[in-house]
Amino acid sequence: MTVSWSDYRRARRRSRQAWGLLAAFAVSAVAALFWFFTAGQFAAAGPAAAGPTEAPVFDAAWMKPVAEPHPVPGGAAVSALDGLAVKGRVPNTGYSREAFGQAWLDVDRNGCDTRNDILRRDLAGVIFADGSTCKVSGGHFQEPYTGHAIEFRRGADTSSAVQIDHVVALGDAWQKGAQGLTPKERQSLANDPLNLIAADGQANQKKGAGDAATWLPKNTAVRCHYVARQISVKAAYGLWVTAAEKDAMKKVLASCPGQPTITAG
């Protein structure tokens, strides 16, 4: 059988097309596998492996509610965010820790100071100091901001490894409405379980007085809860947000539009 030159060219062209399609399919298959193992399968598993998605708030068995000037609105945190005023920061003039009362008072009058209340609430395997039912000397927990397992041991060189973070930093609160609160309300803000989380000391130091526009937990699994908690605190105490802060909060909540506000009681 004789094959013409035109038939040969057509066959060769079809062969090149077939190999091209096969190569494209192979590239697509490799890309799909890459997505599956980097973004698909493990994206779903990632947050759970990264640590907790929320942090404790209140234990009615031994804690008492702290009076808040306003009720935290129910429903979605993003809706509560839209209810907050948007303003710029006012000058930091007159700010001091003492403006929020003595550190770690027993504001709920349950017989224990606030720092030990929060350690008891947030740690597992709590150990009390000899002869005390308040003073926490040890424990462990899955720290929310880093997602790491951390051991707490009270001591001059070890206590600072676990610090109590003000979710809405007091310096931030001072520049966004807290100057207009009464001394008692500021004292409540500084000791309200809603506004307090036991945290990795280094992470807490890095946060400083930052808001959501300048600092978010490294552990992305807890960011929705963290931002919702900031919104809830600001609603409860009549504080405002800056435009940049609101934008940062909305960006976080876009990944969890159903995230509810948080209450302390």
Rank of each mutant, 00 (worst) to 15 (best):
P69T: 03
V27N: 11
T2R: 13
V3R: 12
G101F: 05
Q187M: 15
G131R: 10
A85Y: 05
Q187G: 14
D59V: 01
A23K: 13
K251N: 11
A61G: 10
A156T: 11
V241G: 02
A44Y: 14
P69E: 02
A243T: 04
A99Y: 09
A209Y: 12
A103I: 05
N219K: 05
L21Q: 09
N195S: 03
R154H: 14
E68D: 08
L33R: 09
V233G: 07
F100S: 03
K206D: 12
D200L: 01
V222H: 12
D117Y: 08
K176G: 00
S132P: 04
P144S: 04
F36R: 13
P217T: 08
G88V: 01
T220N: 11
R229P: 08
A209H: 15
A235V: 02
W62I: 06
W215P: 07
D106I: 01
R153G: 00
K184Q: 15
Y95Q: 04
A99C: 02
A198H: 03
L196D: 09
K184E: 15
E151Q: 13
W5R: 15
G201H: 02
Q179I: 06
W104N: 13
V27A: 15
P217E: 09
G40V: 03
V126D: 06
S137C: 00
V233S: 06
A31P: 00
P47E: 00
P217R: 08
G74N: 07
G155N: 09
K251L: 11
C224W: 10
A67P: 00
A24S: 11
Q187V: 07
Q142M: 10
N204T: 04
A244Q: 10
Y95G: 03
H70M: 09
P183R: 02
P217D: 04
Y145L: 14
V167P: 06
